[in-house]
């Protein structure tokens, strides 16, 4: 079972990066203390606060591990998994290896919705809802434009996505123009760059729910997503009406993208690059592609976030780092004709 071995390695790597991430940061905390704090939290969570370890650490250390690093690492894992899975699904559903949440305009649409929600002073649930609605609008717009276009659909969809993206980013610019320069504008600007530095535990809970609501059906339906990659007539003759499946997949993928965007801002390219790395390593079957994309996406974003907070004294926004990796992958796909191939 070659696949099992690869999956086991991926899981181990993911877990290793998760734990290692707790030691990375400006404030040094030794290995044992971190483990003790985490174990203490875990025991308290399981025993509903009745038991705990004897405190041998300072409350500052506890606060850093539990209130700062834990939500941030968990958010990186969650957002990475969500964006990579959504990307893999979009690619299959549109029969197009060059699409991803950012190419289709889902991220920009969601970004516009969230900026608008910040402008209107809405709560976190309002931000997520608005980003979902506009993310969905962007995807559907790109889809319909490419469907009614007379040029080849692969190219049409990429071009339509570029058009939709620029439309929504213009909208976002307008929102920034009219936003209050004291409080709203910095919030919007900072958040648009893509960052996990201001994540709080409460935000995390809020994004985790929609992401899981999107992820679970996609995980359960993952084999069937393969059927979306063949023509409508073929799928139908095999006994499946793809319309409903397509709708479920598009809603789940867009929900995950929007929820990610609403807590982390715009983190580009993860949804394009990670599914392709997975295709190269694990093959094209969505039975494997969905869980592997989620794990690899999580590991990747945790890693990139670690780099972003250690490489220089000022934090580098995540979106900048992911672009360094994503752009070459996209170029590679253009050169190879849109598909990372394997035998």
């Amino acid at each position: 079972m070659k696949y099992r071995l690869k999956l086991a390695i991926l899981c181990t790597a993911c877990l290793f990066i998760f734990i290692a991430s707790f030691f990375i940061g400006r404030y040094g905390i030794d290995f044992l203390t971190v483990l003790k704090i985490l174990a203490d939290r875990f025991v308290r969570l399981v025993s509903f606060g009745k038991f705990g370890l004897k405190q041998t650490w300072t409350s500052a250390q506890q606060s850093i591990v539990v209130n700062i690093r834990l939500p941030r690492i968990a958010a990186a894992a969650l957002v990475g998994a969500a964006l990579a899975t959504a990307g893999a699904c979009y690619q299959g559903m549109f029969r197009n290896p060059m699409v991803s949440p950012d190419i289709l305009g889902a991220s920009t649409g969601a970004g516009f919705g969230a900026a608008l929600a910040i402008l209107l002073g809405l709560s976190y649930s309002g931000i997520t809802t608005m980003s979902f609605v506009f993310g969905m609008t962007a995807v559907l717009l790109a889809w319909f434009v490419s469907k009614s276009s007379r040029i080849q659909t692969t190219i049409a969809m990429v071009l339509a996505g570029v058009m939709v993206s620029s439309l929504f980013s213009a909208g976002t610019s307008f929102v920034k123009l009219v936003a209050d320069t004291q409080s709203q504008l910095p919030a919007i600007t900072y958040w648009l760059m893509g960052s996990l530095s201001s994540i709080k535990t409460s935000d995390l809970g809020f994004a985790a729910i929609p992401i899981l609501i999107g992820l679970v059906p996609l995980f359960l339906l993952r084999w069937r997503i393969n059927l979306l990659t063949v023509s409508e007539a073929e799928a139908r003759s095999m006994g499946i009406e793809t319309g409903r499946l397509r709708l479920v997949v598009i809603i789940c993928a867009t929900l995950m993208t929007s929820a990610s965007v609403s807590i982390s801002g715009m983190i580009g390219w993860v949804g394009l690059a990670i599914p392709h790395f997975c295709r190269l390593i694990f093959g094209q079957d969505y039975r494997r592609l969905i869980p592997c994309s989620a794990l690899m996406g999580a590991a990747f974003l945790m890693l990139v976030d670690n780099i972003s907070r250690t490489i220089t004294t000022a934090e580098i926004p995540l979106g900048i780092l992911t672009a360094f990796i994503g752009a070459p992958v996209f170029l590679y796909l253009i050169i190879t004709g849109g598909s990372a191939r394997n035998d």
Partner: peptide, 15 residues
């Protein structure tokens, strides 16, 4: 569009 293996493609017939 994607390089599914021959076996993966045949399995789709089991839908």
């Amino acid at each position: 569009v994607f390089n599914h293996t021959v076996l993966d493609c045949v399995l789709m017939g089991l839908t």
